[in-house]
Design a protein around this nucleic acid. Structure first.
Length: 523
DNA sequence: GTTGCGTTGCGACG
DNA sequence: CGTCGCAACGCAAC
């Protein structure tokens, strides 16, 4: 039988404080770092650091927000922090908000406060890896215990790579096979925390409330529409219950069959932003889903070329047209408007615009598109975003470059009336459905009647899909052929470069590809 | 080396 | 709504 935490605390010696550093994992339920900190501590300092690297307003960015995050994601984060603070207060604690470069702030707090244990969720994002190393180094010199569990994802990526002989799996099936059933799935997760030890003396540190957008220096009227998705653990759990309440829908859910043009009631759960910030535990989601599966009869089931040789265009005009929703293809532009206004769109809609920008039509480098998604999506995740852009651009994981999404017929398949386009591109709201996916083909009389002259009120297509996609196919075919032909030669050259690069970085063991290449050379 | 398959293509045809 | 040709890639298993 478990004793209440408050009772345990009273038996502990005084002065044992713990610090919980929140970054993602903005939740109470299934939060191993928070739980570990609470166990056997007299004081717990729940801390969030407002990081200028992500949060400082950037008036020169291509849309409202900071350099690295669109205003929607910053808003979502602030709502999540506010909710976390409320939930902590219910348990006798509160969220301490500080501002500054996180490793400096952390080290300052560790010096100022009486902390024996530093607890924070492990993060694979390279930015956090570097940050965490600085903080961990300080903690070890100061004799502070560090507890950094993997709790953001269902699996520890390092385990998967190790099981695969030090290499990441290069397709989905082998990933599933390697991953298997997660080790924690057999026993129930800890989702109830009855109380948290009180916050200790904060000394001279200046503690802030969770700021508003305005307090961070943003002007709310910068943007004419905000994302309809509200941040926070409470909303995440509400949304989870709502999504899982329709057991039939859950059991028959098949991702490729979802309707990307559905926006009044999206075709997926829209839990991704909550998973991204850890407002919802991915593991708790998994267990709840398994519970639903148990009670139904049937349910649906579930790379890395270092030498980029695809000769992508450098064309900032085409990139800007795509980014600003001015391609002249209403289906593509409507999706880009939803991205900007909502910070979320259906995954198939993401496919369409990613394919269009890269191997399908514009042949712009996938990294350019990745950067735009990274900034504007409220659910953007470093690893998922990079992986999916590699995938969609046929740079890795997926190679069937002939399969190009049509910027006109793909959308029409789901939404023949063009309601989605009419909603996100109101300039086209009166265009007859016969022309709404290809408005430049409408006779001038129709354009006049619809109060939308193509070339004046809405742009002409930036490229012709027929000829552009043919040209893209040809370039991909040639790039692939060249890659095949030069493999040995190029690898040898690159080996030297990679070798010296790796020596500098001192992380050879982390990098699977050079080993593969060496092996190929030996064979 | 050969074969089978790959988280989610398109368009024509019946 | 299902099937097929299109043109044909890389990876994994054998």
């Amino acid at each position: 039988m478990k004793l209440p935490l408050s009772l345990l605390n009273s038996t502990m010696p005084s002065g044992s404080g713990s610090l919980v550093w929140f970054r993602k994992g903005l939740r109470i339920h299934d939060n191993p770092a928070l739980e570990y900190a609470s166990r056997g501590s007299n004081y717990v300092y729940p801390l969030f650091v407002i990081d200028p690297h992500y949060m400082e307003p950037d008036p020169n960015a291509f849309s409202p927000g900071s350099t690295r995050a669109g205003i929607n994601r910053i808003h979502f984060l602030l709502e999540s922090l506010h909710d976390l603070d409320l939930n902590l207060k219910k348990l006798g604690s509160r969220l301490l908000v500080l501002k500054g470069e996180p490793s400096q702030v952390l080290i300052h707090c560790l010096k100022e406060w009486d902390v024996k244990k530093l607890c924070f969720e492990y993060d694979t994002d390279p930015y956090y890896q570097a940050l965490d190393n600085r903080v961990k180094n300080y903690a070890s010199t100061a004799g502070i215990e560090v507890f950094s569990p993997v709790s953001h994802t269902l699996f520890n990526p390092a385990d998967i790579i190790e099981k695969n002989g030090g290499r990441p799996p290069l397709n989905y099936q082998s990933f599933l096979k390697l991953a298997g059933e997660p080790p924690w799935a057999s026993s129930p997760l800890s989702v109830d925390l009855s109380s948290i030890p009180p916050v200790g003396d904060v000394g001279s540190c200046e503690i802030l409330q969770v700021p508003t957008l305005k307090e961070l220096g943003y002007v709310e009227k910068d943007q004419d529409e905000f994302t309809p998705f509200r941040g926070g653990e409470s909303e995440a759990l509400r949304r989870l219950r709502e999504s899982l309440s329709d057991k039939e829908w859950v059991a028959n859910f098949e991702k490729p069959k979802g309707d990307p043009s559905a926006y009044v009631k999206p075709a997926t759960t829209v839990l991704s932003p909550y998973l991204k910030f850890g407002c919802l535990s991915s593991r708790y989601f998994y267990q709840c889903l398994k519970d639903v599966y148990k009670n139904v009869k049937r349910h649906t089931s579930p790379p890395v070329s270092l030498v980029g040789q695809i000769p992508w265009n450098v064309d900032d005009k085409l990139l800007a047209a795509w980014r600003e929703a001015r391609t002249g293809y209403p289906w593509i532009d409507a999706i880009m408007v939803q991205l900007r206004k909502w910070g979320w769109m259906h995954h198939l809609a993401r496919h369409c615009v990613a394919c269009f920008l890269t191997r399908g039509d514009l042949f712009v480098h996938w990294e350019k598109g990745r950067d735009v998604f990274e900034r504007l999506l409220i659910d953007s995740d470093w690893a998922i975003n990079n992986g999916n852009w590699l995938w969609l651009s046929c740079s890795s994981f997926f190679y069937q470059y002939n399969r190009i999404y049509s910027p006109t017929s793909f959308g029409r398949k789901y939404d023949p009336n063009g309601n989605y386009i009419r909603h996100f591109l109101p300039v086209l709201k009166d265009m007859p459905k016969e022309y709404i996916y290809e408005p430049w083909t409408a006779p001038l009389s129709v354009q006049t009647k619809a109060k939308c002259i193509i070339g004046r009120d809405y742009p002409k297509p930036v490229v012709s899909h027929d000829s552009a996609s043919k040209e893209c196919r040809r370039k991909m075919r040639e790039a692939y052929a060249l890659n095949q032909k030069l493999k040995g030669l190029v690898s040898e050259e690159d080996l030297k470069k990679l070798g010296s690069k790796l020596d500098e970085d001192e992380d050879e063991g982390q990098e699977p590809n050079p080993r593969r290449k060496r092996q190929k050379l030996i064979n």
